[in-house]
Amino acid sequence: MSKNINYTEAIVELEGIVSDIENASIGVDELSEKVKRAAELIKFCRSKLTSTEKEVNSILSNLSTEEKAEEKQS
């Protein structure tokens, strides 16, 4: 899997694959390949989500710590 892919590209590709699967507009020959790709994309997106969530929470909690620190200084 390409490391340059971002979440949006990944989700678009994933949605395409899922749509293909849902519509059964996918051949048996490429099915396993596509499912394998979808699983990879899901894994990637999930980890991306988790890391993003953690990062955001960490940034926001840092922000409130800074506020408190500033209050103490003033």
Binding site: E15, I17, V18, I21, E22, S32, V35, A38, A39, I42
Partner: peptide, 9 residues
């Protein structure tokens, strides 16, 4: 999507 990917094939 995972469900779909799992169950779809």
């Amino acid at each position: 999507y995972e469900t779909t990917t799992q169950s779809g094939p």
